[in-house]
Amino acid sequence: MNNEETIEERLEREAADWFAAMHSGETTPELRQRFEAWLHGDRTHKIAYREFEQVYRDLDHVAVEAGVDVDGALVRQKAGWVELVAGWLRRPAFALVAAALMAIPVAAYLTTREAPGDLIHAAAPDYVTKTAEIRDITLEDGTRVTLGARSKIATAFTPKERRVTLLEGEAFFEVTKDPDRPFYVAAQDTLVRVVGTKFDVKRSAEIVHVSVLEGIVEVMKPDNIEKAIETADSSAFDKQILTAGERVSAARRVALPEARQVETAKPGVWREGRLAYEDASLAEIVADVNRYYDRRVRIATSDVGDLRSTIAFNSSEIDQFFDVIETIQPVSIDRAASGDIIIKRKR
């Protein structure tokens, strides 16, 4: 009998062990760096990890009925997950429930996806930042990404294309030129296509903001993002061509507006620790503030969120923002007992 571990078994074991380690609640910057080195060291690592993530999601559906404490086991057991899962599957109750619920992940995806062209639910983050953390990343093609505070991106590279999905927050891209492999950034139902340039993409609750520092960027709203990337044909889509100094704000499920010139807020200036806005809504500004501030900031009513300002302040000095906004807008700052900061219309 051959007890040697096959390559496939080794990949399954490593993916399971890394998943347990990264979800144990005991991660450190050093551990995260080692994990990312493993994940991006070989394409088979990423495939194995994604497959185990799907296994874990499936287990989550069947665990209660089968009497298995998946989350508890994740905390207690840092390694040997392949053997642990195999043991669960030998339980009759677990096997029956798992078989009955096999279609749940697909059904959940089909019923909860946000828009026809939105692929966000299909991606899991490769890189993540915490509150007030700004991080520089070099992708496998040499493209440099600066990931803003409390942001997440997923990456997918093939011989024909390069793709990044902005799942949350903001990212600045310095794309390595490769005419044979266009570079795509997907966020909500908006798709950005470039060959080599410098640009910024920011995702808020309902709007994706794209601004260009250098080069040319194509922003489009395809009915199906996956198909748009596969065909590499943007001629049939609603789109805007942006050049240096231009910006477009794409609201979800709404046609693209005309691009506009950015006069004062240089794209990507937040990388230097400065948050700058030109005729921006208070809702957009506060969404950014919440990614850099350790207390939650809320807007009391939608009409306050619609107030527009041209303003700049340091991300490390958020308290100055409250003083300034109270001066230039008809609002007051309420510091609640819960610790939240609430921006209300001044009476």
Rank of each mutant, 00 (worst) to 15 (best):
P257I: 10
R57T: 05
V269F: 06
N314S: 15
V286R: 05
T27S: 12
P330E: 10
A16Q: 09
R162T: 06
A283L: 06
V82Q: 02
P29F: 01
I225N: 02
K130D: 12
G80P: 02
D71K: 15
N314A: 15
I104G: 01
P159D: 06
L275H: 01
K152L: 07
I207N: 00
K46F: 04
T27P: 06
L256M: 10
K344M: 08
N224D: 07
I153D: 06
A132V: 02
A93Q: 13
R135P: 02
S235H: 01
K152W: 07
E5T: 12
P116F: 13
R43Q: 05
V68W: 01
L139R: 06
V62A: 13
L256I: 05
H209Q: 15
W18H: 04
T264K: 14
R57F: 04
I229S: 01
I328E: 05
D180Q: 15
R247L: 07
S309G: 12
L191D: 03
V217M: 09
D319N: 11
D288R: 06
W81C: 10
Y292W: 10
V254W: 13
A171L: 08
L139H: 08
S234C: 13
V331C: 08
F19K: 05
A95K: 09
R252G: 00
L96E: 15
V106G: 04
V289Y: 03
G169M: 05
E226K: 15
F237Y: 15
F19T: 10
P92A: 08
E30L: 03
S281A: 04
P267T: 08
V324N: 02
D238S: 14
A93K: 15
A66H: 08
F173L: 14
I299E: 04
N314H: 14
R274E: 02
E161M: 14
A232S: 14
V75Y: 09
R296P: 10
K202A: 11
V219P: 07
P222Q: 07
